[in-house]
Design a binder for these strands. Structure first.
Length: 559
RNA sequence: GCGCCUGUAGCUCAACGGAUAGAGUACUGGGCUUCGAACCCAGGGGUUGCAGGUUCGAGUCCUGCCAGGCGCACCA
């Protein structure tokens, strides 16, 4: 069940007024204008506003204020709307009716599990592919941002009526993996007293030695007694599985979970790699130069061509990425695909778009979100992160130090476009006073009231919501009503960073209400008010919980 | 050199081309004998990097500068 949006109702009223004005000859337009209805920044300007008269003033050569008056007079009456007011220089402001607002408390109460679900996606399939770290080491802080962003975006899209697949692309083929396997093998040999050196540019991180140690414990020196190539292959298989398992556990720890882990190697096993390449060749996008096979992405607007098969005959990473997107669009037929990449891959956007176009899919259905870099600091000192040298702070260390909820909130509240500095000392210090807890505290406080009411066996099901007339009560209801609109908006803009800011406002609205409106009163004269307010508290809890759920944060009953 | 992103309060960051640019944090002062003070109230704090332009209206769009980040491989 989806929550209807008041905003859409207002939009329709305006559209009706425009149509009526045209019929009456008060408005002559070549094209029907796109109507915008917004939430004004200031409460005094009403619940909704449209700037339509201002935007039509030029085309119609009419005074915007007079046009606003005219249009306002054609706006039909509606149950939800108390007042329509024209404001200079040409806004039309809408004020919601108190009785209608009160009634929304009942609406929320009746949809505890689905409030905030809207039908913007109409069941369209969308894949969100994110994190996709090479399984050559654990997930670190930089990847955590994309992980939190992707998981929240997926939640939002699901709430907005899309059929969402969360996918992790496991880069388990290619030369970096080979390098990793050899590194583990070298550590394995060393652990058994065999003099061995790490490959040049091998992985030197402590976790590689630990991995080798685990293999020694489970398998002893089995792999010393066989042909080296076979040993590396078998140790490689073990290491890869362990590493992917570790990545999965770490992500799960910060509540990032996937519907599917897609292996790059399967692209070669199923023949999809070959199909994708053949398809490009047939379309004339491939050419051979300098013993390598090139994708002529310049034909599609990229500023340079890219190698897909090296002169050694080995496919590049880009080649399997093409095959992977062939799988996403052509094989699995996702209507929309969202890739979340780090800023260091930003330069590859044009070629990926070009490749999708060359495969015969619409590149507009591929959205690549770029999450900017996270610079990690400890006080004034910058902590360099390098997987190769093994110096980095892992996701798990971070989440354990700062806390999962605070961590998610911290990453989530910032626009992906903005680089961030993550000061571990500051984060630890601030974690106790993190806004995340402000929101959770609102939920816990709320739960405290409901639990007390239940302990006292108060039955509030007959509460009369029309008693909720205090400005703090109405403000809380108004804030609650914004969640479904926000879900629709975020699904469209793909900007989930609005969610934490909204949740803060919702928590504030609740704390204000709590401060000013006693719910469970000892005074028998307040009996009816108590019942009405318990309904409000119940509905507020639903919206707080839904907001926290969407962000992947806990909604504690006590803390 | 070219491309993408960023520059807003002391700090960390919001703001779909709209109305007096907002939060958190820090600082100062105030508020618990009643549902949880991890809360609330009040206060100071800004030439939105700089300069032009577009328009009824620009932090937001365009142009040029300045500063920072990331790219520009037959690595991923």
């Amino acid at each position: 069940m989806e929550t209807p949006l008041v905003r859409d109702t207002i939009l329709q009223l305006v559209a009706q007024a425009v149509a009526q004005a045209q019929r009456e000859g008060d408005l002559q337009l070549q094209t029907t204008p796109e109507i915008e209805v917004d939430r004004p920044a200031k409460g005094q300007h009403g619940d909704f506003a449209t700037n339509l008269p201002l935007r039509l003033a030029r085309a119609t050569r009419l005074n915007p204020l007079k046009l606003a008056d005219k249009l306002a007079s054609y706006i039909p009456a509606h149950d939800a709307v108390a007042q329509v007011v024209v404001a200079p220089p040409g806004f039309i402001n809408f004020y919601l009716r108190e009785g209608w607002l009160q009634q929304q408390v009942e609406v929320v109460r009746q949809t505890p599990d689905s409030y905030g679900r809207v039908d913007a996606g109409h069941g369209r399939t969308v894949m969100v592919e994110f994190v996709s770290v090479n399984p050559t080491g654990p997930v670190h802080v930089g990847h955590t941002r994309g992980a939190v962003l992707g998981s929240t975006l997926a939640n939002v899209l699901e709430a907005a009526g899309y059929v969402v697949t969360r996918e992790y692309y496991v880069n388990d083929a290619g030369s970096q993996m080979e390098n990793f396997y050899r590194s583990v093998f070298a550590r394995y040999q060393q652990a058994l007293g065999v003099a061995a050196e790490l490959p040049a540019n091998g992985y030197v991180g402590q976790y590689v030695a630990e991995l080798a140690q685990e293999i020694v414990q489970a398998h002893g020196q089995t792999f010393l007694d066989m042909d080296e190539a076979a040993a590396i292959k078998q140790i490689g298989d073990l290491s890869r599985e362990k590493m992917v398992g570790l990545i999965r556990e770490d992500l799960s720890f910060i509540r990032v979970n996937f519907d599917n882990w897609f292996s790059e190697r399967t692209l070669f096993q199923t023949g999809e790699y070959q199909q994708a390449i053949d398809r490009l060749r047939q379309q004339g996008y491939l050419s051979e130069r300098e013993n390598a096979l090139w994708f002529n992405s310049t034909m599609l607007g990229d500023d340079k061509d890219n190698v897909v098969v090296r002169s050694t005959g080995e496919p590049t990473y880009f080649a399997s990425d093409i095959a992977y997107h062939y799988n996403k669009f052509i094989k699995r037929e996702f209507a929309q695909v969202i890739d979340i990449w780090g800023a260091d891959h930003q330069g590859h956007v044009p070629r990926m778009k070009a490749a999708v176009a060359a495969l015969g899919a619409n590149p507009e259905n591929l959205t690549i979100l770029i999450a900017q870099m996270v610079t990690l600091k400890r006080g004034a000192e910058v902590v360099r992160a390098s997987k190769r040298t093994g110096e980095f702070v892992t996701l798990r260390e971070l989440a354990q130090e700062v806390g999962v909820d605070a961590c998610r909130y911290f990453f989530l509240a910032r626009s992906p476009d903005a680089q961030m500095e993550f000061d571990l000392e500051l984060a630890k210090k601030e974690s106790s006073e993190n806004p995340a807890y402000y929101i959770q505290y609102a939920h816990a406080r709320n739960a405290g009231i409901l639990n007390l009411a239940r302990n006292r066996e108060i039955d509030w099901s007959r509460g009369d919501v029309s008693l909720l007339r205090d400005p703090n009560e109405l403000n809380l209801i108004r804030t609650m009503l914004r969640l479904p609109e926000l879900v629709a908006k975020m699904a469209q803009s793909l900007e989930p960073h609005h969610l934490p800011h909204y949740a803060m406002e919702l928590a504030t609205a609740f704390h204000w209400f709590y401060e000013n409106c006693r719910v469970i009163s000892a005074n028998p004269e307040d009996g009816q008010m108590t019942l009405a307010r318990l309904k409000l508290v119940e509905s507020a809890q639903i919206v707080l919980r839904r907001s926290l759920e969407l962000m992947g944060m806990g909604a504690p009953e006590r803390m």
